[in-house]
Amino acid sequence: MAKLDPMPKDRNGHLIPGAQTALRNVPPGIPRPEYVGKSAPRPFTGSDVYSPEAVERIRRAGRIAADAIALVGENVRPGITTDELDEIGHRYLVENNAYPSTLGYRGFSKSLCSSVNEVVCHGIPDNTVLEDGDIVNIDITAFVDGVHGDSNRTFVAGEPTEDVRLLVERTEESLRRGIKAVAPGRQVNVIGRAIESYAKRFGYGVIRDFTGHGVGEAFHSGLIIPHYDSAPQYDTVMEVGMVFTIEPMLTLGTHEWDMWEDNWTVTTKDKSMTAQFEHTLVVTERGADILTLPSTGMAA
C-alpha cells in the first residue's frame, strides 16, 4: 500500500494551511443561528443566568454536541484527514436536527474545529492527514431549540510519545479541577487559579488569551472565564443558573501564540504540542452540573 502524503507541513514538520472542501449543506428545515449569512452576530443583551427550562434545552444541545464529538473521536486514526472528520461530525449533527454552530460564524467555513498538535484552537478542517502520534482536538457546538451547547475533547491518532500522552491526560484533569472550583458566590477567576495551580506542577504553559465563555442563547455571550491565575479583572460572581464553558488549553512549552493568515488558526509560538478539553456547565447550589455529557453518561 502506498504511503499517505502527510502534507501539508513545512520542512520542519510543522503544520501549514491545507486545501479545504466546499461548504457542507444543512437541510433548510433546520433552524439557523441569527448570525448565519452575516459578518458577525448581533450584540448579546440577555443574561447568562437561565431558567431550569432553558438549561434543559442547553443540555439537549450539549448532549448532541458531545455525542458528535464521541463519534468523531472513534474515527481518529492515522491516515484520516481532518476534513473527513468534519464530514462525520456534520452528518451526525444534521441527522439529529442540529445546526453546527461554527458553520458560518464570523466566516468560519466548517462544522467543527480540528486543532492538530501545535494548533491551540480554531483549526479549520482540510486535507491534513493525521499521522501516528498526532493529537487532534475536536470542538463541536450544536444549535438546537434556540440555544448552543459547546464542548471539545483531544484525541490521539495511534501511539503518542509519553510526554504528549501525559499532557492530554493532565489537561483533562485540569478541566475537572476547574469544574470543582465552581460555586455560587465565588468569582469566576477562582477557576483559572485551580487550573494553573495544577498545570504549573508539570511546567506546562497555560494559554491566557483564549478563554471559556458564556453560552446558551448566544454562542459567545461576552462573559469571560479565565484559565490562568492572577486574573483579578475577571471578577464576575457566579450565580445559580449561570451557564458558561470551561476549556483549558495547556502546552508543553510557551503560553504565547501566533495566528495564521486565515485569522482563525492559533498555534503555539514555539510550536510545542498543546491539548484542550471543554464542557458547558450550569452553576448549581452545590457546584456545577455538566451539560455536555454524551448519551452514554461517560463523564470527563
Rank of each mutant, 00 (worst) to 15 (best):
K3D: 15
L4D: 15
L4Y: 15
N12G: 15
H14M: 14
H14D: 15
H14A: 14
H14V: 08
Q20R: 07
T21Q: 14
N25C: 01
P27L: 00
G29S: 12
G29H: 13
P31L: 05
R32V: 08
E34T: 15
V36N: 03
S39V: 14
A40H: 09
G46A: 05
G46P: 01
V49L: 04
V55M: 07
R59V: 01
R60A: 11
R63F: 01
A65R: 03
A66L: 10
D67K: 09
I69G: 00
E74F: 00
E74A: 08
R77C: 06
I80Y: 14
T82V: 10
E87M: 05
H90F: 09
R91Q: 12
R91D: 06
Y92P: 07
V94Y: 14
E95Y: 12
N96S: 12
N96R: 13
Y99F: 15
P100D: 11
S101Y: 11
S101P: 06
S101G: 14
L103P: 12
Y105K: 05
K110H: 12
C113S: 12
S114G: 11
S114Q: 09
S115K: 09
V116N: 14
V120I: 15
V120K: 09
H122F: 09
D126K: 00
D132S: 13
N137W: 00
D139V: 04
I140D: 12
T141Q: 12
V147A: 12
G149D: 05
S151A: 14
S151N: 11
N152V: 02
V156E: 09
A157W: 10
G158S: 06
G158A: 07
T161D: 14
L166P: 00
L166S: 08
L167F: 06
S174V: 00
L175D: 02
V182Q: 03
G185P: 06
G185C: 09
Q187P: 04
V190T: 13
V190H: 11
I191H: 09
I191Y: 04
G192K: 07
R193G: 05
A194G: 03
E196S: 09
A199F: 01
R201C: 01
Y204I: 06
Y204D: 07
I207Y: 14
I207P: 02
F210L: 13
T211K: 15
G216F: 11
E217T: 13
A218G: 05
H220L: 08
L223P: 06
L223K: 13
P226A: 04
P226D: 01
D229H: 07
S230H: 08
A231F: 02
P232F: 10
P232V: 08
D235F: 03
T236D: 06
V243T: 08
T245R: 03
E247M: 08
L250F: 10
T251F: 03
G253T: 07
W260C: 00
W260V: 02
W260K: 02
D262S: 07
N263R: 11
T268G: 01
K269I: 13
M273V: 12
F277R: 00
E278L: 04
V283E: 04
E285F: 01
G287W: 04
A288T: 01
L293T: 11
L293N: 13
L293W: 01
L293G: 03
G297E: 03
M298S: 08
